[in-house]
Amino acid sequence: MVARRKKRAARDCEAGFPSPPGYSAIPIKFSEKQHTCHYLYVREHRVREGTKSSWPQKRTLFILNVPPYCTEECLSRLLSPCGAVQAVELQEKPDLAESPKQPASKFFHPQPIPGFQVAYVVFQKPGGVAAALALKHPLLVSTESHPVKTGIHSQYREWISNYTDAVPDPEALRLEVDTFMEAYDKKIAEEEAKAEEEEGVPDEEGWVKVTRRGRRPVLPRTEAASLRVLERERRKRARKELLNFYAWQHRETKMEYLAQLRKKFEEDKQRIELMRAQRKFRPY
């Protein structure tokens, strides 16, 4: 029974598989151990007349139903017997010729969605597209000379690659920082030289630019001057302290102050009366 299924699968791969209208089917196998075939649906990339496309005409092959394990390197290797491959690009969905292609951001790198994709393969000569459309024999994705890792092995490789990219090289980082600082110092020196040249020279409206360079250089403080400044700051803070924080303290202080004023007023009255009595005229 198993041998019969293997023969039927091999016969189906050789006989071909029905493809959508306008497409040709290319059978592929992941490895020699696989008996069933997966089919890539290919056609020549064309656009409407008068519409611009980023892909060269008559040299670009459009591919549908590309499995996740089939990378750009795999497609280039599988189709290289048809002709020299110039470029390969995998996408989640086909390009729309009417809409402009969005530029890739250098700050945000969205994670690709795993699944079946479409591909654009550009050959150096138009004959490569015709040879690819005529392929009928199954192509092997993973071979002994070019093994393709899938499953947990590919996940490990991706994790290791992400970790390696996240850890910067100390020497490269130091070189980048030194280069940046040299450029920054050079820029500051140019700005200072330009400011010195422009200082004191009136512009078209007669205004003169004044910079901080015209000020007298500040001498460094001595220890005695620093101590005087600290003592002055301490006195200033002491004056700002709240002597009467609570309301009842403030009320008592005010009452004491009024009592002192009344006492002083009475004393002043007595002193004035005494002075008047002493100044009274006495002829004898």
Rank of each mutant, 00 (worst) to 15 (best):
Y41N: 01
L90G: 10
Q102K: 14
T60P: 12
E44L: 05
I113L: 08
E44N: 03
K93S: 07
I113Q: 03
Q57F: 09
T60D: 05
E144G: 15
S145E: 11
V121N: 00
S105T: 11
C82S: 14
D169I: 08
K149I: 07
E49C: 09
K58S: 14
A104L: 15
L135E: 00
P110V: 06
K149C: 12
K93A: 07
E158T: 15
P112N: 10
R77M: 00
E49S: 11
K52D: 12
R46W: 09
Y69P: 01
A97E: 11
H146T: 10
P112S: 11
P147F: 08
Q111K: 14
P94I: 04
E92I: 12
S80N: 08
P103G: 10
L133F: 00
D165R: 08
L140V: 11
V85W: 02
I160R: 08
P126R: 04
V47K: 00
R59Q: 14
E89G: 08
V141D: 00
P168M: 13
E98M: 08
A97F: 05
R59P: 00
H146V: 08
N162A: 15
K106Y: 06
A132S: 14
S53P: 14
G115S: 04
A87K: 15
H153M: 04
G128Y: 09
H146G: 02
C74K: 02
E44F: 04
Q117W: 06
T150D: 07
D165N: 11
V66F: 03
S142Y: 05
P94W: 04
P147K: 07
C70P: 01
T150H: 04
L139C: 10
A130F: 09
S80A: 13
R43W: 01
Q155I: 07
S142V: 06
Q91H: 12
L135C: 00
G50S: 04
P112E: 06
E72P: 00
S154G: 09
S53Y: 09
Y156C: 13
E144F: 11
T143V: 09
A131E: 04
G128E: 01
C70H: 02
T150I: 14
Q117D: 04
Q86S: 13
I63H: 01
S53C: 13
F62E: 01
V85P: 01
S145L: 05
T150N: 06
V141A: 05
E89L: 07
S99G: 08
